[in-house]
């Protein structure tokens, strides 16, 4: 039974993942409608003038993961207005005595700034920086047996550890603090297993693609993604906050760039109760592991 749909796929929500999903489907030959609840696309990439003439990012601001994204890197976003600016120092951690530890694009410059921890920093980061481009797509995805098994295991052995444990390899407060600041992006207590992973990935991306800010604010990433999506023939509808599944134009696939809570509120009638129970149990608070 082949139904005729106006769209092959509808994506609800225009955050980075909604836009990525819509683009990947549209460029694979499907017809896609992207629905956004607010009047501004981008989700966590929105920028706003809270005071006239002063543009501020509202959520995300600095973009090592966007610049290093295996998917976004495939897209011609510079043709659609995206320009990354990389400051000479990517990140710095200040100390009371007026010194600081800093992450620079160059692996060696960063290591050189860490005094007696130079060798340890290079030993830790060099293999990750070298292997990351071939690991990224596997690691930044659902669980599966990685294609690059040895390199993945090597990364995993460091990444699995707690940031606190891993930073014990360093002797200086500078190196420990720099790594702790990176790992804090996990939003977890730093003595918890796997918190090292976030720090390692952010630092490796810094050495590969920098920690850039988009010219014109994070919104510029969203705008470039949307322009590219529309150039492929994709359709977008803003200011439509979807409340029920029945509002969504029938399609072969409906993809929610929302939390499980909104998915259940909107499409709960179609989902088995065991799924709703499991998905709504996603923990919001750090637990002891």
């Amino acid at each position: 039974m082949q139904k005729n749909y106006e769209y092959d796929a509808v994506v609800v929500g225009s955050g980075p993942n909604g836009l990525a999903c819509a683009i990947q489907l549209q460029r694979s030959g499907l017809s896609v409608l992207l629905i956004e609840g607010s009047e501004q696309i981008g989700g966590g990439m929105r920028s706003k003038e809270f005071f006239p003439g002063y543009l501020s990012d509202v959520c995300s601001a600095i973009h090592p993961m966007a610049a290093g994204s295996p998917f976004f890197s495939q897209l011609p976003l510079t043709d659609y207005g995206l320009e990354y600016i990389n400051p000479p120092v990517l990140a710095a951690h200040p100390f009371d005595n007026g010194t600081s530890a800093s992450l620079k694009s160059s692996l060696y410059e960063t290591a050189n700034g860490l005094g007696i921890d130079k060798g340890d920093y290079l030993d830790l980061m060099q293999p990750i920086v070298e292997n990351w481009p071939k690991l990224a797509e596997d690691i930044l995805g659902p669980f599966k047996i990685p294609k690059e098994l040895i390199a993945s295991l090597q990364f995993g052995l460091s990444a699995m550890k707690s940031a606190k444990w891993l930073s014990n390899r360093f002797k200086t407060e500078e190196a420990k603090a720099l790594f702790a600041g990176m790992a804090a992006h996990s939003f977890l207590p730093l003595d918890q297993l796997s918190t090292a992973a976030v720090g390692l990935v952010l630092m490796a991306n810094g050495h590969l693609k920098g920690w850039p800010l988009p010219k014109g604010g994070s919104q510029a990433i969203a705008n470039a993604l949307l322009s590219y999506f529309e150039s492929l023939g994709g359709k977008v509808q803003m200011g439509w906050m979807v409340r029920s599944y029945g509002e969504i134009p029938p399609a072969k696939a409906v993809i929610f760039d929302t939390g499980p809570k909104q998915l259940i509120e909107i499409a709960g009638d179609h989902l088995p109760s065991i799924y709703k129970k499991k998905a709504s149990e996603v923990s919001l608070r750090p637990r002891r592991i």
């Binding site: 993942n17 999903c21 819509a22 683009i23 990947q24 499907l30 966007a66 797509e137 930044l140």
Partner: peptide, 14 residues
């Protein structure tokens, strides 16, 4: 902001 959730979800749809 990496879009990788969206990319993998799209591939599951495809």
């Amino acid at each position: 902001v990496h879009g990788m959730c969206g990319f993998h979800a799209a591939n599951a749809v495809l």
